[in-house]
Write a protein that binds this DNA or RNA. Structure first.
Lengths: 247, 247
DNA sequence: CGCCAGCTTGAACGAGGTCAACGGGAGTGG
DNA sequence: CCACTCCCGTTGACCTCGTTCAAGCTGGCG
């Protein structure tokens, strides 16, 4: 986990170089992101104050406890969100991909740390400005509420996984979730891009690295998945993967 | 878990007798609940369409998968929310008390089952009407977003508990959370009202009844808590309880 | 009084954790 | 170009915490 010095005016965010500002209208993730619910006027308003930033693997976008001054939209790459205990135990609370949003409305301080898993581009917006627009325009407020609602529901799903599922069920559920996210972005769900390490998976699934590795091997030996290139998991038998997840 | 027949016009909710409608202005939980962010006009508007309903221990307010047509505010009593797996494994995702809200905006179907832990009074509002008011009035929309945001953050906290904490840390964290909730409602935090069973606690904490019981006994033998009346836990040593929670 | 549900306690077991070793690929420096 | 290191993933052996199975205990209720 590298920390990078702050080079720009938007406060409380480590690292990330500032790119020349690109108007939002051309934005590749606009259709998938929160921004889809903004009018052209609001969009051009926001494009006056947003910033594009780049992060490398291991860079932290912000830390748990930092003042939550910004919203971010992932334009490319991926992030993990996590909480740490005093003795170093870690819980990854989520992974984010292209089109996903980070940052919660009306939250004083960040409740998690956000760290890049690979080269990642983010679109940063001042929280205050976004909230102003949400106040003035129903669609954005609705959209934020919708996203938060989905966040709660998927957190409940994750609680079920952490509280009641076996190691194999956890890993299988995770792979299914990952593939659904990939499909959302229009990517291949069979040859699954896996930007996170085994340790990250373990910290997400409430397991150790060793257990993740062993369980992965079991799924591989059962012919359900195969591990070819590094960072890619090939799903070979969806039916049995779903059985293994105990859906 | 008893199911009760539907006796009223608001659809998709089992059980609960309808009380004569009481105007919201006199409502005892108004100040603590979402409704605090409503103008008088909106409040009187809402009081035309809301319903007060009573549930007994074990009654289900709604089931996972039911269409989510209503918001509820807890006027008295308490509820548990949970998800079930096909084979009966259960994960309790939350407990709700006086002043708390159930029901998410812009959610098609309920993602959890809600069941009363004791005699419980709820104020039921049509989701559509609440969303209309939220669209027209910033304060309510903001408030809903704020509540959803808090829900996400506390879900993250619970993920850390489920994924990384020991049995003792889980139970101690739970008691501290429970006491904070009691304090919020102006109740005694030392003599803690505990309306849920050991099984419910286990299903919330990702443990079995037996482990909850054993861990409770350990805390008791250590002099950190004492168990007097049924349904009441007396916290005797806050410092050591916090140590046990590994905050 | 007897029944039943919820709580506790004991004993044995096992899923996953811990500790340790090893292998391979990427990056680095000579 | 090779040697070296470091990190990541894998595998094995052992152990532990919490589960499972089983038995009693208690209090509320018909």
């Amino acid at each position: 986990m590298k920390t990078v010095s702050n080079t720009m005016s938007i406060p409380a965010c480590g690292g990330g170089a500032v790119d020349p500002n690109i108007p939002c209208f051309d934005c590749g993730v606009r259709a998938r992101a929160v921004c889809s619910s903004l009018s052209n006027a609001e969009l051009s308003d926001l494009s006056q104050v947003n910033r594009h930033r780049k992060f490398s693997s291991g860079d932290c976008v912000f830390f748990e406890g930092d003042p939550a001054d910004s919203f971010f939209v992932v334009m490319g790459g991926s992030l993990k969100l996590y909480k740490l205990m005093a003795d170093g135990r870690r819980q990854v609370t989520g992974f984010l991909f292209r089109g996903d949003m980070i940052g919660a409305a009306y939250q004083q301080d960040a409740d998690v740390t956000a760290e890049a898993l690979e080269d990642t581009r983010l679109c940063q917006m001042p929280r205050e400005r976004v909230e102003q627009i949400a106040d003035d325009s129903n669609p954005l407020g609705r959209r934020l509420l919708e996203i938060a609602t989905k966040g709660v529901a998927s957190a409940h799903e994750q609680m079920l996984l952490l509280g009641r599922k076996t190691a194999q069920e956890r890993l299988a559920s995770f792979l299914i979730w990952l593939s659904a996210k990939a499909e959302e972005r229009g990517e291949d769900r069979d040859r699954l891009a896996v930007p996170m390490s085994r340790t990250d998976m373990g910290d997400y699934l409430g397991l150790t690295v060793e257990t993740v590795s062993r369980t992965m091997t079991k799924l591989k030996n059962a012919g359900i998945i195969s591990l070819e290139d590094r960072g890619v998991i090939h799903v070979r038998d969806w039916d049995r993967l779903e059985d293994a997840a105990a859906i």
